[in-house]
Amino acid sequence: MTPQAPAAASTRRRTYWQTLLALTVLIAAGCLAHWHWAVLASGAGRLAVADHGWLLVGATAVTATWVCSALAQQGAVTRGLPAGRLVATQFAASAANQVLPAGLGAGAVNLRFLMRCGLPAAGAATAYAVKATAGAVIRGVLITLLALACPGALRLPQASGGALVLVLAGVPALLLAAARLWPRCRRAMAAVLTDVRAVHARPHRVAALWGGSLAFVVLHAVALIAVTQAVALPLPPARVALVYLAASGAAALLPTPGGLGSLDAALALALVAAGAPAAAAASAVLGYRLLTVWLPLLPGLLVLAVLVRRRAL
């Protein structure tokens, strides 16, 4: 058996379980759609007569997110990247992300692009990880600020005694695993920290990384707010933004392609829990997903094919 055989077998098993989980979530989403078809049909009808001006605002915000994503990715590396190809790569990555689960599509496209631009594999992975981490930090800060501004908007579940026991039992296991893996990870972590320091030593890269990450998240929230205004959903914009941030964070835990099913359900449930009528919430989610997924999907895949053909990926 070759040394690569165990790694290949592990990759196949991981892909199998991820695919199985993705299919399970999609089937569950299909069942929910069947059971609540009357609400979905009402939401679609309401979207058809929505305010087109607000929908145009949402579409403009979604289009700008690809530029912001490119800006954040440029801020995560010290060398200059070709601006046009970088923006096109983010557009293509958003389409690839709808095909593969758990962000694998966007990650693969971005890593390939960075390596084509001359970064080593480890440097490309670090740059993408830095960008993803900045986005996660921005989301956490915004959720905290909006939760303080809208008290009571987020209702966190009470922790049961069993869950508390599981958490307390898991902490020592995590510490033990970290202690065993630390010698192997120390060199890799040192290389990552070196790259992070190099990026943050340049003020214009810091502004691009954090400014682009902030604008990306804010514009997605603006897109959902615009759709809710288009369908006259009776929720204030700050609460809608908080709902989007919380629901998208929860949906990221389920590895479905583009959050299909998981994000839709999380957004709809969060909007209803925040006080929106079910039909209005369904139409808002349908409109948001139309702008962010279905309309850009085919053009994004075509751009991806062109980038591959031109060996930019």
Rank of each mutant, 00 (worst) to 15 (best):
V308P: 00
V130G: 02
A121H: 03
G211S: 11
Q18C: 10
T228M: 11
G275K: 08
T144N: 00
T65F: 07
L193K: 10
R85L: 11
V222Y: 00
T60F: 15
A191Y: 06
H220V: 02
L142A: 12
V99A: 13
A41C: 06
L148S: 09
Y16G: 09
A50K: 07
L145R: 08
H34I: 04
Q98Y: 07
A61I: 11
A246P: 01
W35T: 10
K131F: 11
A178T: 15
H204C: 04
R309A: 14
V218R: 02
G261S: 06
F91Y: 15
R112I: 02
L224T: 03
P120T: 15
R289C: 05
L298H: 00
A226W: 01
R309F: 12
L181S: 12
A64S: 06
W210N: 12
G105I: 02
L304F: 14
L81N: 08
T15P: 00
L104V: 15
A238Q: 14
P82L: 08
A279S: 14
V192M: 13
A232K: 07
G300R: 01
L176E: 00
G140D: 08
L302H: 00
W17S: 04
G161K: 06
L166V: 10
L269E: 04
V308T: 13
A252R: 03
L263W: 01
A284I: 03
A108E: 07
A226Y: 03
L176C: 09
T78I: 10
T133W: 13
R13A: 14
A201R: 14
A188V: 08
R180V: 15
W17L: 14
G258C: 08
L156P: 02
G275M: 07
A191K: 08
A121Y: 05
R309E: 03
T126F: 09
L271W: 04
A127E: 07
I225D: 10
A268Q: 10
H200A: 13
A76G: 09
T144Q: 06
P82K: 02
G58S: 12
V167I: 15
L313T: 11
T133K: 01
L148K: 04
N97T: 07
A281D: 04
L56W: 15
A276Q: 02
R239M: 09
A92F: 06
A149R: 10
P234Y: 10
L26A: 15
G258V: 04
G58Y: 06
C68E: 01
C150H: 10
A48G: 04
T19V: 12
P101F: 04
T292L: 13
P183W: 07
L307A: 08
L114C: 08
A28M: 12
P234R: 09
A177F: 09
A247G: 09
